[in-house]
């Protein structure tokens, strides 16, 4: 059983009279523990594909399932729980909540876990601190996002995506605004999470050098997927 499987998935956007096909008839199987990189030109549909897998948008046609559960059958709350407990998002753009501190931003996804009232608050704090140390920002734990650089904000968002122990990380250009050294540190962190815990990674990147080191490489072109 694949962790994620897409069957003939198409996503079209309606712009006035015209239809724009962002994702075209994609079929793809992702196994648990995979580390996949996706490259492709701007506008080729990478973000749309990740969004479909992560259940924050719905396909126009075709079927997506997680461990044989059809996403379209989950309903609004079911999809939320799926995102909450199975998926870790690293968005392409800044995604920290401005009125929350770094620590609170990390704790945010834990509030949505069913039964979260009963989990030990101290444990969650420890976990947040631990993840911040991994991305090298423990000293910023009480800072607000506006007090951080773009790359630092990016790393906080990276740490946040691991808070609910996801099975699958959907990373949309996670290292876009990082210097080479920091970028490499992050990739090493991802690899260790992939290898030690078995978290699946689907990572969009423009860095072909980086992509070339991942076990499975895909290219998107005008909404279609090609193996590399």
């Amino acid at each position: 059983m694949s962790q994620i499987s897409l069957h003939n998935v198409t996503k079209t956007y309606q712009i006035g009279e015209d239809n724009l096909v962002a994702v075209q008839d994609i079929s793809l199987d992702i196994q648990s523990g995979d580390f996949i990189s996706i490259v492709g030109h701007s506008g080729s549909g990478k973000t749309t594909l990740l969004s479909l897998i992560g259940g924050i948008t719905t396909p126009t046609s075709g079927r997506i399932s997680f461990e044989d559960m059809d996403l379209s059958a989950m309903g609004s709350d079911g999809l939320s729980e799926y995102r909450c407990q199975k998926i870790g998002f690293m968005f392409q753009f800044a995604s920290l909540l401005p009125m929350l501190t770094v620590k609170e931003n990390l704790l945010l996804p834990t509030m949505f876990v069913p039964g979260s009232e009963r989990t030990d608050a101290a444990k969650l704090d420890d976990k947040a601190a631990e993840l911040l140390r991994s991305v090298g920002l423990l000293d910023k734990i009480n800072a607000f996002p506006c007090q951080l650089s773009g790359g630092q904000q990016r790393r906080v968002a990276i740490a946040r995506s691991f808070m609910n122990n996801p099975a699958l990380i959907l990373a949309d250009e996670p290292t876009g605004d990082l210097d080479e050294d920091t970028e490499q540190e992050m990739i090493n962190f991802f690899k260790s999470m992939n290898q030690t815990i078995g978290i699946t990674f689907v990572m969009v990147t423009h860095n072909t050098e980086l992509a070339s080191h991942t076990p499975r490489r895909l290219r998107m072109h005008q909404g279609s997927l090609q193996m590399l």
Binding site: S95, L97, R160
Partner: peptide
């Protein structure tokens, strides 16, 4: 936008 992010992080409509 914030609500969108929270929803993506797992917030239900009820949240």
């Amino acid at each position: 936008r914030e609500v969108g992010i929270m929803r993506a992080l797992g917030a239900k409509e009820g949240h």
